[in-house]
Simulated scan of single mutants.
Amino acid sequence: MTCFAILLGGDLSVTTRLRRQIGKARIIAADSGMMHAAALGVTPELWVGDFDSAGSELALQYADVPRETFPTDKDATDGAIAIAEAMRRGASDFLLLGGLGGQTDHTAGLLGQSLDIARRGFRCCLSSGAEEAWPVVPGHLSIDVPAGSRLSIIPFSDLTGLSLTGVKWPLAEQTVGLGATLTLSNVVTGQVDIMLQAGHGVAIAYPLLAPND
């Protein structure tokens, strides 16, 4: 199992939980996502992008990190390029850090990309530190978040056979239509297990952090 953490250019709150999550992950920075490296205490093995937003100070600070430069006029985001490179390097799991919040089009696009990652058989989690998201595709997904955390499942299509345990309001083989709000604002009581027969969506959690987190 090889986990890659991709540093993206959005907001990131560095918590104790986030530090545990990156653990022994290999790191790739996407353009200005390199700004999170110091706070996380990591040095990426690769820095990719068009470098239109990275900043000269970062370039000096991380001059020894190998770089792959791409033209500004390209058909993929810097984050997508970093993810593709991680796949080429043998990734099995992904942590996409700094991709939630900010510009809605980029966030929505990244959530869609996470669904594609999951449909290709990779495990994927997005995090801003204060907010986490997991793509939900047919099959089984286990999520470990602290009891008391708020959890929602957002349908990106009609969901068929949705079962949900480890929450205050469990579900058993429920059909949840696109646009339905049935699965908003649940409360975690233990390990969360999600089973889905058909469709795809995104589970979003707001981890209840300990005082020292």
Score class of each variant (00 low, 15 high):
residue 89 R to L: 09
residue 89 R to S: 00
residue 90 G to S: 11
residue 91 A to Y: 04
residue 92 S to N: 12
residue 94 F to E: 04
residue 94 F to W: 01
residue 95 L to Y: 02
residue 99 G to P: 04
residue 99 G to F: 03
residue 101 G to I: 08
residue 101 G to H: 01
residue 101 G to V: 10
residue 102 G to D: 03
residue 102 G to W: 01
residue 102 G to A: 08
residue 104 T to Y: 05
residue 104 T to Q: 03
residue 104 T to S: 10
residue 104 T to N: 02
residue 105 D to R: 06
residue 108 A to L: 15
residue 110 L to W: 01
residue 110 L to V: 05
residue 112 G to K: 15
residue 113 Q to N: 06
residue 114 S to E: 07
residue 114 S to Y: 03
residue 114 S to A: 15
residue 114 S to L: 07
residue 116 D to E: 14
residue 116 D to S: 07
residue 117 I to G: 01
residue 118 A to Y: 04
residue 118 A to T: 05
residue 120 R to S: 12
residue 121 G to K: 04
residue 123 R to L: 05
residue 124 C to P: 07
residue 124 C to S: 07
residue 125 C to I: 09
residue 126 L to H: 02
residue 126 L to F: 09
residue 127 S to C: 06
residue 127 S to D: 02
residue 127 S to K: 09
residue 128 S to Y: 02
residue 129 G to W: 03
residue 129 G to C: 08
residue 130 A to Y: 10
residue 132 E to D: 13
residue 132 E to H: 05
residue 135 P to E: 00
residue 135 P to G: 06
residue 135 P to A: 02
residue 135 P to C: 00
residue 136 V to A: 03
residue 136 V to R: 01
residue 137 V to I: 15
residue 137 V to G: 08
residue 139 G to Y: 14
residue 139 G to Q: 06
residue 139 G to E: 11
residue 140 H to N: 12
residue 140 H to G: 11
residue 142 S to W: 11
residue 142 S to A: 15
residue 143 I to H: 06
residue 143 I to G: 11
residue 143 I to S: 00
residue 146 P to F: 06
residue 147 A to Q: 14
residue 148 G to R: 11
residue 148 G to F: 15
residue 149 S to M: 15
residue 149 S to T: 15
residue 151 L to H: 02
residue 153 I to Y: 08
residue 153 I to E: 08
residue 154 I to R: 12
residue 155 P to C: 09
residue 155 P to I: 15
residue 155 P to A: 13
residue 156 F to H: 14
residue 156 F to W: 14
residue 156 F to P: 13
residue 156 F to E: 09
residue 157 S to A: 15
residue 158 D to S: 11
residue 158 D to Q: 04
residue 158 D to M: 10
residue 159 L to M: 07
residue 161 G to S: 03
residue 161 G to D: 00
residue 162 L to I: 02
residue 163 S to W: 02
residue 164 L to R: 06
residue 165 T to L: 02
residue 165 T to R: 03
residue 166 G to M: 02
residue 167 V to Q: 09
residue 167 V to R: 10
residue 167 V to S: 01
residue 169 W to S: 06
residue 170 P to C: 05
residue 171 L to Y: 01
residue 172 A to I: 05
residue 172 A to D: 10
residue 172 A to Y: 11
residue 173 E to N: 03
residue 174 Q to Y: 04
residue 175 T to C: 04
residue 176 V to N: 00
residue 176 V to S: 00
residue 176 V to Y: 00
residue 177 G to T: 09
residue 179 G to I: 07
residue 180 A to E: 11
residue 180 A to G: 09
residue 180 A to M: 08
residue 181 T to I: 14
residue 183 T to R: 01
residue 183 T to F: 03
residue 183 T to I: 08
residue 183 T to D: 00
residue 183 T to A: 05
residue 184 L to Y: 14
residue 184 L to R: 09
residue 184 L to N: 14
residue 184 L to P: 08
residue 186 N to S: 12
residue 187 V to E: 15
residue 187 V to Q: 13
residue 188 V to Y: 10
residue 188 V to G: 11
residue 189 T to I: 14
residue 189 T to F: 03
residue 190 G to Y: 12
residue 191 Q to F: 07
residue 195 M to K: 13
residue 196 L to C: 05
residue 196 L to A: 11
residue 197 Q to D: 12
residue 197 Q to W: 10
residue 198 A to S: 12
residue 198 A to D: 11
residue 199 G to N: 05
residue 199 G to A: 11
